[in-house]
Write a protein that binds this DNA or RNA. Structure first.
Length: 554
RNA sequence: GGCCCGUUGGUCAAGCGGUUAAGACAUCGCCCUUUCACGGCGGAGACAUGGGUUCGAUUCCCGUACGGGUCACCA
């Protein structure tokens, strides 16, 4: 009786690993090409951290003419949710993070290194597990969860390191005969890795992001094949990333402390280990404590949140890139219109510690992104958003020709407005441009400086006589100045400031009055453009309406 | 608790033994301007802490404090 017999008993009728080694040859890629992946579990919505990882992995692969693939890690069937894979694919797609290989739907995939869904690779893992058993590098363990639990409490009481190692690794010491006997007797078991490591020895590891890190060797005999026959993360990682040719494992830094184990696994399996790049998580300040963005507590942890709020995917990406490489901002300033694809991301420039998520900064980035959009783009995206989340806005935008004019105010020039950070801001910004909405607005408003209603009325009715729709901007503004002068307001603000006592106020006061009559707002974009878009009839209507209102109040 | 990692203004961060310690967001003031936004100028604001090493430490070493990660038949 030897390891081979044991292996055959546990995994009869299973292919030899040479089959898989041949089936998945090494990738033929240009020098320096990096193969990356994103490997989420289909357990619910896509986390902003996964997107962050995916975005970085995608960019690094693209930059080096490598490959980026999506692998679904569904080895924990208890946590799996329905359509989890679809959700992941769509989540990434929204941000244009498109894998070269991997799952494309719940059941379909592209690429030659599949299946890209771990539950479909069961045979592959078992083949490699068998290989380890044959070599005496893995063994069946018959300990029950209860026994393990008991062991753990003992260890904790004795204040020693918990785990399945050394003298605690009971089943490791079983002879092959005993193992075979137990299996034949129908005892339940799982497969453990026989760790060659010693805790008192150190290993040196260079992480692409974290730099040099020293660890004690791993000496835990971790489970590699679970009771359901599926592998644990560690084992699947080693097998998959070897077979799929991953050169750089970019993942969250919660994995950093598993590196000794992973390196050992690669070593014992006879694989070349990939490079590791452990990304710091995106954090949130929670009452003075830093913690990871949490699925449960933080809505902004879900990538779907941004679509719901109407924050453009590009803005989120730019913000994430900002966190990833802080020189991105400088690059962006120097390359205002360049695609982010031409920014060269560098892994080793990534922060070693986790950044706090800053919504205000994101919104600022988003304002810049939207400011560069054409009216047409703003229209399309805002409309798409509105159809889903704000029917009232969608309704307003139905008149495309008019809406384009509204959205085009002060847009596309050298100093575009920066007043929209997200599509949910749009309505508030433009409602008053829509007559039916404007008419229904019964909000109270102040007349500001010119608070004498009688005077306001006179100024407005004078202005309306002067106003000609076809006036160019200078003429238009001169007329406002004329009205101002007529009623004792300075034509120029400067004149007023030099001699405040000589005037009741200045042009600004008059234009503010007109602005209020037209929009019920004190702050709006350029009024000349607003009036052009509203049209003569509407302008006259609004102004005379305010006059009537004044009369009523008198 | 053991083992890892980290700590530069409110936030994101440059910095690699000698700097007036960049920049961005936020904030404040001024200018520009018919309002707002844009733009311009300026202000306030930081090297966690104690020891070393050194002619000199934000930079190197050790301790302390604080923060984060990890110790599953979850990933």
């Amino acid at each position: 009786m030897n390891y081979k017999d044991l292996a055959d008993l546990i995994f009869p009728n299973i292919k030899d690993i040479s089959y898989y080694e041949e089936k998945y040859p090494r990738r033929n890629l240009p020098e320096g090409a990096i193969v990356t992946r994103v490997a989420p579990s289909p357990t619910g919505f896509v986390h902003i951290g996964s997107l962050y990882q995916g975005l970085i992995a995608r960019k690094i692969a693209s930059q080096t003419k490598g490959v980026f693939f999506l692998r679904i890690e569904d080895t924990d069937q208890k946590r799996e949710i329905e359509n989890g894979t679809t959700e992941i694919i769509n989540g990434f797609k929204q941000f244009d993070v498109i894998p070269d290989e991997g799952m494309t739907s719940e059941t379909e995939e592209v690429g030659k290194y599949g299946p890209y869904k771990q539950s479909l690779r069961k045979d592959i893992y078992q083949s490699y597990a068998k290989y380890l058993i044959e070599q005496g590098k893995a063994y069946p363990c018959f300990c029950t969860p209860e026994e393990l639990e008991e062991m753990r409490t003992k260890q904790e009481e004795a204040k020693i390191r918990p785990g399945y190692y050394g003298v605690w690794a009971k089943c490791r010491k079983l002879s092959v005969e005993e193992m075979i006997e137990k299996i034949k007797a129908g005892e339940k078991y799982i497969i453990r890795f026989k760790s060659p490591g010693r805790e008192d020895r150190k290993i040196k590891h260079h992480d692409v992001i974290k730099g040099n890190v020293d660890f004690p060797e791993n000496d835990q005999d971790i489970v590699i094949i679970k009771a359901d026959g599926l592998p644990t993360y560690h084992f699947a990682h080693a097998v998959d990333d070897h077979l799929m040719g991953t050169t750089h494992v970019i993942r969250g830094d919660e994995w950093l402390s598993s590196v000794p184990l992973h390196l050992q696994l690669f070593q014992e399996l006879g694989f070349k280990a990939p490079k590791y790049a452990h990304i710091s998580p995106i954090m949130k300040n929670d009452n003075g404590n830093k913690r990871k963005l949490s699925k449960r507590k933080d809505p902004e942890a879900a990538v779907s949140y941004y679509a719901e709020e109407g924050i453009p995917a590009n803005a989120v990406k730019e913000y994430l890139l900002n966190i990833a490489n802080s020189n991105f901002e400088n690059w962006r300033r120097a390359n205002k219109d360049a695609s982010i694809d031409s920014f060269e991301l560098q892994l080793n420039k990534m922060s070693v510690s986790g950044a706090l998520f800053d919504m205000i900064k994101l919104l600022d980035v988003s304002k810049n992104v939207i400011a560069k959009y054409t009216a047409e783009q703003v229209y399309e995206e805002a409309y798409k958003w509105a159809e889903k989340y704000d029917m009232e806005l969608a309704d307003m935008l139905k008149d495309k020709e008019y809406s384009l004019k509204v959205l085009g105010i002060e847009r596309g020039n050298v100093k575009p407005r920066r007043d929209i950070a997200k599509w949910s801001d749009v309505k508030e910004n433009i409602v008053y441009m829509y007559p039916e909405k404007f008419d229904k607005n019964t909000e109270e408003y102040e007349l500001q400086t010119i608070s004498n209603v009688e005077e306001a009325k006179q100024i407005l009715s004078t202005y309306i006589q002067y106003y000609k729709e076809e006036d160019d901007k200078d003429t238009w503004f001169n007329k406002i100045k004329d009205v101002a002068e007529k009623y004792g307001y300075a034509r120029e603000v400067k004149e007023y400031k030099q001699n405040p006592d000589a005037y009741k106020g200045h042009v600004g006061d008059v234009s503010t009055l007109i602005r209020i009559a037209l929009t019920k707002r004190t702050n709006t974009p350029d009024m000349y453009e607003i009036m052009k878009v509203l049209g003569k009839e509407e302008v006259e209507k609004r102004i005379s309406k305010l006059c009537n209102l004044c009369e009523k109040e008198d």
